[in-house]
């Protein structure tokens, strides 16, 4: 009888060890959304005429090439880090003409608003778990393309 009574309490002790973790997890999830935004130029040219442009990383290149698009080379034009608070928003400029506004809904989704020359040209709302990419693109002069790549960072 004594052993039977002791077992649930011992189980409770072990389970109680998870209490701080369990209480901390939702807080962690509801914290700042740390993002990285890249402005990428897509072209079929092997080199960019702008010496400040550098080729995107191998992993990103592989993913961009997996898209059903006609461009083969991608160059990083700008890179910005954003920390968007829960239920908050951050606006940042990626180029002279391109701005983005990122809203953290606080419920696991984000909203991306893209502005071109100050005009709102796109609004995307979706979840963006770590390791996933949200790529927005459009045509650019000389049969090239622009891309805004958004991903979570640690």
């Amino acid at each position: 009888m004594r052993q039977k009574l002791r077992s649930p309490s011992r189980l409770g002790w072990w389970l109680a060890l998870f209490l701080p973790l369990a209480l901390a997890a939702p807080c962690a999830l509801a914290g700042d959304l740390k993002l990285e935004a890249l402005l990428v130029w897509g072209t079929n040219d092997a080199r960019s005429p702008d010496p400040d442009h550098k080729p995107v990383g191998a992993d990103l290149l592989k993913k961009l090439r997996s898209f059903p698009l006609k461009w083969t080379n991608y160059f990083e034009v700008n890179r910005q880090q954003l920390a968007v608070p829960s239920a908050g928003a951050k606006r940042t400029s990626l180029s002279k003409e391109c701005e983005i506004l990122v809203k953290n809904t606080g419920s696991g989704e984000l909203e991306l608003v893209i502005f071109g020359k100050g005009q709102r040209v796109g609004h995307i709302k979706q979840a963006l778990p770590k390791g996933e990419l949200l790529v927005t693109g459009g045509n650019a002069p000389n049969f090239t393309a622009w891309f805004v790549v958004l991903r979570q960072v640690d």
Binding site: K117, V121, N139
Partner: peptide, 9 residues
């Protein structure tokens, strides 16, 4: 990965 293609500009 998600690609959203806009016709802009």
């Amino acid at each position: 990965i998600t690609l959203v293609w806009l016709s802009y500009p």
